[in-house]
Each structure stands twice: as C-alpha cells, then as structure tokens.
Design a protein around this nucleic acid. Structure first.
Lengths: 227, 227
DNA sequence: ATTATAAGGATTGTCAACAAAAATCTAACC
DNA sequence: GGTTAGATTTTTGTTGACAATCCTTATAAT
C-alpha cells in the first residue's frame, strides 16, 4: 500500500491523482461532508496544489465532491431525496441499455451473464450481502457493456458511484436478495430471447424495485447520525 | 460585446471561464478537431493559464473537448456512430423523464408546454427550422424540468450539448418538422392524462424517431468534409 | 527531389510564491 | 462568565516562472 504514488501511466499526473482521490472517497475514508485540505493532499500524494486542484475540479463534475468558493472542497452529502433521484436516472439508463443489449449481446456475453447469475444464487443462499453487492455491480456492468454503448456505460458508472456516497448501510435482507436475483433472471431471459422491449422493461423495473428495496430497508432502520 | 470578461459572478474565476468557453465551443467558433491554445485563451479571457487549465479539464468531463497529453486540448469530434450512441442515451433519459413528469407536472407547467407546442405548429407552417430547433430545445427542457429530477435535467443537457458538436447541418425538412411536433402533441397528451407509461413511451419514441430523422437527412446529403 | 537529422521555437506540464479570504485564537470589556 | 473586536494563523485563489515535450524549419546527405 504505497503512501506516495507518482503517475502510474505515462500520461498526465492529474488523471492519476483524480483516480486515486476517487478511490479514496469511494472507499469511505473521508465521510460525506468532510473537508479535503489541499495542502494535506499535496503531502499525501506528492504533487503540487495545482494538480490537486485539477483533480478535485474533475471530481466535482462527477458529483463526488462539492466545491464551496473560498471554503474548499468537501465530500458530497447524498441524502435520501438525492438517492431517489439517482435511482430514477439509472432506471432510464437501464431501459436504454436493456433495449440495446437485447439486440447486440454476443453469446459469449450472455454466457458470462448467466454465470454471474448462477454465482449470485449461491451468494443469496449463503446470505452474503457484501459479496452479492460486488457481483451485482459486475452484472450491471456486464449488461451495460453488452449494450455496446460506451457513453451509456460511462454515465451509469458515474451515477452509481455518486450513489455509493449514500449507500453505507445498504444491507439488504435475504428475502430482498432473492427477489433481486430473480429479477436478474428475468432480464437475462429477455436478453437471451433478444426481446428488446422486455429487456428494457425488466431492467428498468429492476432498478425501480431497487429503489423500493432501499426505501423498505430505510423504514426498518430509519435512524442515522449518531454521536 | 465584451472581448475580455472578468468573472461575472462573485464566485470563482474558473467557473465563469468554463461557461464562456462552453459558449464559445457550442457557438461553433472553433471547429471540431481544432486545437485550443492555452496562451491564446489566456490573452482573450484575461486570466492565467492555471484557470484556463481548470476550465478545460471541466470541459473534458462534459465531453466537449478532448485532452491529449503533451499535445493540448482539441474540440471534440463527434462522428455519426458517436451521435447515434448519444441518441440512445437520451432516449433512456427521456423515458425516465416522461414517467416522472406524468406524475409530477403542475398545471402551469402543462400550460407552458401546450403553449410551446402551439408556437411550434406555427413554425412548422412557416418551415422555420432554425427557430423550430430553439423551441424544440425549450420543449425538451420543459419536460425535463417537469420531471422534478435535477440530475436528469442536468445529464440531458450535457448529452444534448455534446450532440450539438455533431449537428451542424441538422436541417430537417418541413415534413419531418411536422411529424416531430405531432410527436410532441402525443407526449403532451400523455402528460395531461397523467399516464406515466404512455408519457415514458412517447417521449422515448420521440428521441428514437429523431435518430431516424437524422439518419434520413444524412442519406439525402451524405457528403461532408469539403476543402 | 526526397529523406534524415539537428537546431530552434512554441506549447504544455509542473511547481513554488504571493494575494486574498476565512477560520481561529486572544484579549478586553460588559 | 460571556461576548465582541482585533490580531494571527490557516487555507484557498491566482499568478508567473521554470522544465519537459512536441512541432517546425533549415540544412545536408543520398
């Protein structure tokens, strides 16, 4: 685990720093609302403030941080209404991705999706919600990839990352996991059948149901913000 | 028409510069593929290179420019396959927006949309495709606004701006204009009826039909790139 | 004439220093 | 003891300078 990392690529420093900062933020090392001190980052990452600045500005576009003039950059706080908005956006992206993937997915991509679906069934049985979340991301990415639309892929990832600022306590119950993967099965079947309308509908519905699942799990543990 | 403009807002310079550059690029003053010289922008906008750098990095995130390491920043070239991808993305966003707007649009917003629809009918009759394009943007923005989802609104605008890098010769014929506004009417009716499914479907279809219209108008004038 | 090569200029990459604003601490006053 | 005003420190905003890279041009050899 390197403390000071120079540019990994042969290309610009700012890009590398941006990716590092993204990792740091998504890992939860800095809590939402917490301030990022430019000088501190300078020492930690071994680059000058200009570079840090370019990187944080880029992160602002990705909505991972918020920049308050003359006050600095803080990790963005995503509240419940924000998260609900993001689910709706992802639902739209999913609809488009489902439609395209149904028409374009290769047999190899379908096989890969089926394999993921199987593995997730095992994780559901083991009630391993953490591993399920990882596999779930992989499944969604795979559908986006199969859509053959790079912009769609990229936007979905951006929005999902943004959402990750909210989902800290995103632990779903075993029943919810099971339903979620049943929906994956329906998506997969629609893709196999090359049924564009069904794939669009099922993928979109899967996201909207995910929104409902979040609301449910919120009802069961509504309190946050201790201390 | 000021040549050198300082920060309009009381806030950071980079933000203002970013907006100015965005306007400059979208206006077509710099052609796609053309290089933006940092020093030249420095003189023109009256700020230092650091600021220009922050602004162009931000523009890169919006996909309006491409930054090639050690080579500089160029206005992005959006080719036909790129544009087709963007139509599909917007179709997904439209689907989500239609669904939400049907549930949330206020009577005032509906009245505003109806008014725009009427005005566009006049423009169709006058075959004024330039004014139609402007009004069309307003109509789409209004639906996005009515969806009550700020992220959706913002992403749609970003993608549409990106698309504008392609649409230079986007002149539609009178027949196409007429069909386009008929579709607006169907969207409006679905919204008035608060029929979420219909609104989602019609708005999505409107974008996908727009993609087809682009392909048509491409067939009639396939050649580009003179000189 | 064409190509290869080297010198020179132009442009981007990175940094450190200065200026301005905000936050913090101190002290005086009620 | 609490509050306010001022000074100090910290942090961000902006700039100019230096280093590295790329592009152009001139020159020479085949």
């Amino acid at each position: 685990m390197p403390k000071t990392v120079k540019a990994a690529d042969p290309v610009s420093l700012a890009t590398g720093v941006r990716e590092q900062l993204e990792q740091i933020i998504l890992s939860g090392e800095y809590a939402p609302g917490e301030r990022l001190n430019e000088l501190a980052l300078t020492e930690r990452l071994g680059v000058s403030r200009g570079i840090i600045r370019e990187a944080t500005r880029s992160l602002e576009n990705a909505r991972l941080v918020e920049i308050i003039p003359n006050r600095g950059v803080v990790v963005r706080t995503v509240d419940v209404p924000d998260a609900l908005e993001l689910f709706d956006v992802r639902a739209g992206l999913a609809s488009a991705a489902g439609r395209l993937a149904a028409a374009r997915a290769t047999t190899e991509q379908l096989r890969s999706l089926a394999k993921l679906h199987e593995e997730m069934n095992d994780l559901v049985r083991g009630n391993d919600s953490v591993s399920y979340a990882t596999a779930n991301h992989a499944f969604h990415d795979a559908v986006m990839l199969a859509s053959g639309n790079s912009r769609l892929q990229e936007l979905d990832l951006t929005v999902r990352n943004e959402m990750q600022l909210y989902i800290r306590k995103g632990v779903l119950g075993e029943a919810q996991l099971k339903v979620s993967n049943l929906e994956h099965g329906r998506i997969l079947n629609a893709l196999k059948a090359a049924d564009a309308e069904a794939a669009a509908r099922e993928f979109e519905l899967h996201i909207l149901n995910g929104k409902q699942r979040m609301l449910e799990s919120l009802r069961s543990s509504p309190a946050r913000r201790a201390s």
